[in-house]
Every structure is written in C-alpha cells, then in structure tokens.
Amino acid sequence: MARQGNKLDSKKVNSEMFTLTYGALVSQLMKDYDNVEDVNKQLDRMGYNIGIRLIEDFLARTQSTRCQDFKETAEKIQLGFRIYLGISPNISNWSASGDEFSLIFETNPMLEFVELPDNCTNLKYCNVLTGVLRGACEMIQLDITSKFIQDQLKGDNVTELRVKFIKTIQDAIPAGED
C-alpha cells in the first residue's frame, strides 16, 4: 500500500463486522481447544500480536510524546480505546502507589450479540484486550499486565480491566535475539 501523505484519519468500518469476526474467532478457538484456559491464552497472544503493530499506528496518528508518569499513560490508553473502538472507558480505582488502575467499560462493541453458554464461565471473552495493551506498551518499553476482574457477560454491571505497571524495560532487545 502506498503511503498517502499525512492522511492518517482512518476509515471506519461497521462495528458489527468486527464483533462478528471476533466472535467467530473465539468460537473457532473454543472448538479447536479443549481447555478454556488455553483459549484465554491464545486470545492474549493474538492481542499481543495486534498490540505490537497497533502502537505504531497510534504513535503516528496522535504524535504522542513520552509519558511523564503512569497517569499520563492511562490517559493515552483511554485515547487509544476511543480511536480504535470508539469507546471511552473510565479510568478509576487508582492504587495508592499509583501503579495500578482500572478501566471501566460500560459499553463495549465487542460484547454486542454475545452470550456465554454455561460451560464457558471461565472464558475471558475480551482477553484479546489484555494482550493488545501488553503488546502495545512493551513496544514503548513499559512492562504492564492486566486482567479482567468484572465482566458484563458474567452478570456484572460493568466490565473492569485492571492494569498494573510492573517496570520500565531498560534494554530493548528485540524478541528472540537475546
């Protein structure tokens, strides 16, 4: 694809197509793997692959500069959700040390049309997001981890994703070359 100047305002696609494609992917994984934990892992891995590429697009589009603290990072992550998924999760529940916060999703296009059957209660349907965050942050030398602690699909009012800062990665050796 030829680069077209600074035309970075991306085209949009109907979110239903995205929802359905993601749903089909998850159900395919459920068919292929016996263990729900493996599906969660696989989703996280896929998210990671998406994240390490998505961050490039994010930096190019927003002209972001280095974050001064983790609070700023949280806002950037929120902005990312707005750009790519069209939703603004709330940032809340900061830990006292300021290295952990929650993203609260009231709506999420990924959850449209989705209902978990009884045998999938351990499935973290949106687990791809944890991978995306991990991948994207790793590319800017931030080691973070995240997990879902509330899930609308399991009857909670909101979906809550807890994001935790671990460390700044010092030597950025490309994966597989150490």
Binding site: S10, K11, K12, V13, N14, S15, E16, M17, F18, T21, Y22, L25, N49, I50, R53, L54, D57, I83, Y84, L85, G86, P109, E112, V128
Partner: peptide, 13 residues
Amino acid sequence: KHEISINLYALLF
C-alpha cells in the same frame, strides 16, 4: 451506527 477503526479490523482479520 457504531464504528471502529479499519486498522484494528485489519489486524484482527
């Protein structure tokens, strides 16, 4: 109509 970025869709696909 809810819309999402085409780039994200492309990566998911």
